[in-house]
Design a protein around this nucleic acid. Structure first.
Lengths: 212, 212
DNA sequence: AAATTTACTTAACAATGTAAATATTCCAAA
DNA sequence: TTTGGAATATTTACATTGTTAAGTAAATTT
């Protein structure tokens, strides 16, 4: 094995084409919307033949799953400002606001991460569960637990409460993204403000009033 | 116009074929899932050629929109037991439970009604908004208002609160349907119970504690 | 009886995901 | 240096999809 350097270069190239495909997908995804992400358009963009894509990804779902992962990275970057908030209830609130904002600013990614079926098939096949989602909700859960410990939230099954909080914000975003809110929030620019109001009410409602 | 009877019969026949198409769609929809509802399969079932379908529906989206409407009718039937509940907060709670149950028992319909893009396109084209959804949320809203009037809920913007309640239950159902909950609720038969628990916590949390 | 409208079918197109067969490139051993 | 075999890429092809255009046969109107 004299030419290990060459093999390394090859592997790097392999990864580079993979990255080309992914970048092209993201570009199409963001600029033309999900419906226009097709194998052929990806291939056109990177100037390869369509079937070459299949040398780097098993099928289209796997590409979507990769984009799904990119979405979770993006979301994590969105939450950089959380660590500085000491009050866990305020932090929970801010997490919610970030979630809403991320969803409304990146509807295509949000869709892929929390609504679309396709990327989930890959996780099913892999056997191991939905790791990115798992990690995200564990952060939420930790905050909920902290809220309960410090009596900002009434003590209850933290698992149930975490799912509830998540469901609440997901409900808002997914209804908005899939155009079920237009009748109720006619002006588009009022959507996010309205959602924030909704979140305010929610956080206010769940706050523990029987503080010791 | 001697032959009005014949014209009537013709129109009836026209409606009958329409109904054939719709029934076939529903059958496919329920038995084989949404992905297997194709124009050709519908045509096969009713023993017409595929293109005949287009004489009765503008396009596939219009069929999906019709199924969407059927879903709302089904849901309404689900809520027959609500009228007998006098306490508005209990009624709200029961509405939520019905919503969860309907969603979990009719995931395909729920999908069409509250998640999928396709049927909404028809409403956009028609200009007038999403009438079935509008009606449904108005029922919810009336209950919320009644809750506030009778001090079961703290006074707040009823519109915001209604959207919030809806978002909450929709969040639960849509996460479950689109397989984002499996990691958190591993046993499938625990899904609905867990969601009910979540709803219990929610209703409990939003209930007005400063009752006069 | 002739003309026209209605109801339906056949044929076809374009887009899509994907598989199989084929070609090309490139490195390693003879 | 040549050669054989991976690795990489392309060509061709297929099946499925929604949908349109053209054609046909029967029913209805004139």
């Amino acid at each position: 094995m004299i030419h290990m350097g060459i093999q390394e270069r090859k592997e790097k190239q392999k990864l580079e084409v993979r990255k080309l495909i992914l970048d092209a997908s993201i570009k199409l995804f963001i600029e033309e919307g999900f419906g226009n992400v097709t194998i052929r358009k990806i291939a056109d963009l990177i100037e390869y033949s369509p079937t070459t894509v299949y040398l780097y990804f098993k099928d289209k779902d796997e590409i979507l799953a990769a984009l799904h992962d990119v979405g979770f990275e993006k979301m994590q970057a969105f939450n950089d400002d959380l660590a500085s908030i000491n009050n866990p209830l305020l932090r929970l609130h801010k997490m919610g606001e970030n979630y809403l904002q991320f969803g409304m600013e990146n509807p295509e990614f949000y869709d892929l991460m929390f609504i679309m079926d396709e990327p989930m098939k890959v996780f099913e096949e892999e056997g191991c569960g939905w790791e990115p989602g798992d990690r995200a909700i564990n952060v939420l859960k930790a905050t909920v637990v902290e809220c309960m410990e410090k009596n900002y939230l009434a003590r209850a099954d933290a698992h149930v409460v975490s799912l509830s909080v998540w469901s609440f914000v997901h409900g808002l975003v997914s209804l908005a993204i899939r155009e079920r809110m237009e009748k109720f929030v006619p002006e588009k620019e009022m959507m996010l403000p309205m959602m924030r109001q909704s979140l305010n009410w929610f956080v206010n409602s769940i706050e523990n009033t029987r503080k010791d």
